[in-house]
Amino acid sequence: MSIATAFEIMLAAVLLGLGIWTIVVRETFSATVGFVAYGLLVALIWVRLDAADVALTEAAIGGGLSGVLLLGAAARLRDAEPMAEAAPGKLLRATAAALSVLTTATLAGTVLLLPDPAPSLAPASVANAWATGLSNPVTNVLMAFRAMDTMLEKVVLVLAIVGVWSLAPDSAWGGRPGPRHRADPYGVLAFLARLLSPVGIVVGIYVFWTGANHPGGAFQGGAILASMWLLATMAGLADAPPVSSRPLRLILVAGSGLFLIVGLAGLLFGAAFLSYAPALAKPLILGIEVAMVLTIATTLGLLLSGAPERSAEPWAP
């Protein structure tokens, strides 16, 4: 066994340990912390699997946003803990465990017995990269070869926003989402937000921009930008806009909308829906990605803010 394999086994073991902790620990808050730690660590595995694009995604999501979302919910729900229903009986738990183990074993067996050599679309995606002028193969798959999935996924984000907003009480409809965060303007949190947000903005835009040719991309960059906005919000330096704001809504559909328009242009003037003329491909894709990064950052930030809770009173810092 090589030292690399030993390291990988250990990495997997630590990860599984955190997973087990997340599932079996009694207290919800501890489980949540365990999962956040898991989310941070899983980025390592993705690097090890040579999937840096995914590693960045997991780091941005698992590191920042999931933690805030889940820990916030855990803190708000913790009063409910003692009153929550009892765990299912021993028999049920044993059955569930047995069936889960069986699933794991079957899945493991299947994965280990996959055919060799493995089928791969990597050569095809490299061979066709000329069509976009971008050299990050993952971005090419997302933006060109499987553009339809990416576009529909952006519509999913719009629907998630509609879903979250639809939970607002009627009186707060059109108002600002979530509770207003207040913090000492001279506190540590505000200090961190003042220093870190601008740095995070540079990093977010860098991660987005580098995605054309290196690992990175609109989603990863957008997630980082959203985190910075969230930091400023939690530190009381910024506030969520009212959901009835027209510019806000325009930004929220900018990504999918521009994608759709470019796609339709391809249908009318080019080879097909969602095709790009080779000469224009790179600027078009970058343009869509610029819109997408704005959309994603805003969407993720608003998803974390939750349903509108306050009427749209003007905000005074």
Binding site: P198, V202, I205, W209
Partner: peptide
């Protein structure tokens, strides 16, 4: 090639920084 992105990033960061601090 990076000039537009760099300009945006520096501009946005400076603006945010001046607003917050």
């Amino acid at each position: 090639d990076d000039v537009p992105a760099a300009a945006t990033a520096v501009g946005a960061a400076t603006w945010t920084s001046l607003r917050f601090l």
